[in-house]
């Protein structure tokens, strides 16, 4: 079945290291995406025409372009343009943040606009200042809508990191392939066991995050 191959040498450790690389890239990108996404999303909710046009184009680009194409553009394109090398890891973080910021901004915009006008007005009527209204009334409600959605974004990012091996990063899937290649002669059936393990690793990485999101959604139902 191929599970024996995993126990050979440092194979299992290598797979875990590969997963670590993927997790690191997605977590850094998520942090950047959330930070920038909140800013862009707040700008988008202002309904200013110029900002609207620019952000719409940005969102459409992200939607239309496959992430892989973006990865190639940044990784190879940057070198072509400037003659300088850019590391594959940095390229991935740039692309994932570019993508994540767009998604996050759209979520922030949607959540902000979903707060009824009357929430702002009754706060004002009670004497809350603008800042207080945001701190005590608007942001807590936006956060409740946003958090499960942004956690969902994290799991999608972790899954999409399987693409980064295409620009030479040795993440979990690439490591798996290397192990299978190396053991082709001795255990030709190793592929199944390795891929099953990779499946399990992705599952273990994403499942707790999904659970957390479900839990928060339940807790914040009101």
């Amino acid at each position: 079945m191929g599970f024996d191959v995993l126990l050979k040498g440092k194979n299992m450790l290598r797979l875990l290291e590969g997963l670590g690389v993927a997790m690191k890239i997605s977590l850094v990108s998520v942090v950047i995406s959330i930070f920038l996404g909140i800013i862009v999303g707040m700008l988008m909710s202002q309904k200013k025409p110029l900002i609207n046009v620019v952000t719409r184009i940005y969102l459409e680009i992200v939607r239309i372009m496959p992430q892989l194409v973006l990865l190639f553009i940044v990784f190879f394109g940057f070198t072509k343009l400037t003659g300088k090398n850019i590391s594959a890891e940095l390229s991935s973080i740039i692309v994932f943040s570019f993508w994540g910021t767009a998604e996050m901004a759209d979520l922030v915009r949607g959540s902000l606009l979903s707060i009824p006008m009357i929430q702002y007005e009754s706060s004002k009527a009670l004497g809350f200042s603008r800042l207080q209204t945001y701190i005590y009334i608007i942001i807590p409600q936006v956060a409740r809508r946003l958090l499960p959605l942004s956690i969902n974004l994290i799991t999608r990012m972790i899954k999409t990191t399987s693409l980064i091996m295409m620009i030479g990063i040795v993440e979990v899937l690439k490591t798996g392939q290397q192990i299978i290649e190396a053991n082709r002669k001795t255990s030709p059936g190793a592929a199944f066991g390795i891929f099953a393990t990779i499946f399990l690793l992705y599952f273990l990485a994403c499942w707790p995050i999904s659970c957390l999101s479900k839990y928060l959604e339940k807790r914040w139902e009101n």
């Binding site: 009527a125 809350f128 005590y136 409600q141 914040w220």
Partner: peptide, 27 residues
Amino acid sequence: IGMVFQSYDLFPHKSILENVMLAPLKV
């Protein structure tokens, strides 16, 4: 000036007691 609106406008993320206490505490 106290105002009560036609549409329900309580803060959905706060309990009833918190809804009532928030403004006197913070404002």
